[in-house]
C-alpha cells in the first residue's frame, strides 16, 4: 500500500513539473518579442558605456575584472595593442592605471615571459565593457562577498 502511494505521489509530482514547463514555455518570449517574423525587428535600444571610477566589484576569485572605461579608441591588432598604452609594466604608474595581472605574462606551461603572453593578448576576449542594461532574464546569482 505504502509503495503504491509513493509511486502515485511521484507520478503526480512529475505531472506537475512537466505540466508546469509546458505552460512556462508558452510564457517565454524570444528577444525578438512578439514581433511578426516577416516584419522589421524592434529598434535597438541605445546604451552608453559606463565609466566607473575605482572599477567594478568582482563577483568571484579569478574573475577577469570588467573594464570601467570606454574602449572604442583602442585597437588591438597584430602590430600593436592599444590597451598596453596604460596597462603595461612601463607605463602603468604614469597613467595611474592598474598593471595587467602577473598571470598575463605566463606561458601555457607556467614560464614567465617578458611580454604579455599570446594567450592574454586579445584583452577584450576576457575583459568586457559594461552598460547599464536590464538583465534579459531574471538572475539570482550572488557574487562572492
Amino acid at each position: 500500500m505504502k509503495k503504491i502511494i509513493q509511486i502515485s505521489l511521484a507520478a503526480f509530482g512529475l505531472l506537475l513539473i512537466t505540466g508546469n514547463t509546458v505552460t512556462a514555455k508558452e510564457d517565454i518570449a524570444s528577444l525578438r518579442g512578439t514581433t511578426d517574423l516577416s516584419g522589421p525587428s524592434l529598434k535597438a535600444v541605445k546604451q552608453k558605456v559606463i565609466s566607473q571610477e575605482g572599477g567594478f566589484e568582482r563577483s568571484y576569485k579569478q574573475q577577469p575584472p570588467m573594464v570601467p572605461h570606454k574602449v572604442d579608441k583602442y585597437k588591438i591588432t597584430l602590430k600593436n595593442n592599444g590597451c598596453m598604452k596604460c596597462h603595461s609594466k612601463k607605463n602603468y604608474k604614469k597613467e595611474k592605471s592598474p598593471m595587467v595581472g602577473e598571470s598575463h605574462f605566463l606561458s601555457r606551461d607556467g614560464k614567465k615571459l617578458q611580454k604579455v603572453s599570446s594567450r592574454r593578448y586579445f584583452c577584450d576576449q576576457c575583459h568586457a565593457i559594461q552598460i547599464d542594461a536590464k538583465p534579459l532574464v531574471k538572475n539570482e546569482f550572488d557574487g562572492l562577498k
Partner: peptide, 13 residues
C-alpha cells in the same frame, strides 16, 4: 592605425 614597430606600452611622457 599605429605603425608596426611602435609599442604604445613603451611610450608615455
Amino acid at each position: 592605425a599605429l605603425p608596426e614597430g611602435y609599442d604604445p606600452g613603451e611610450d608615455a611622457p
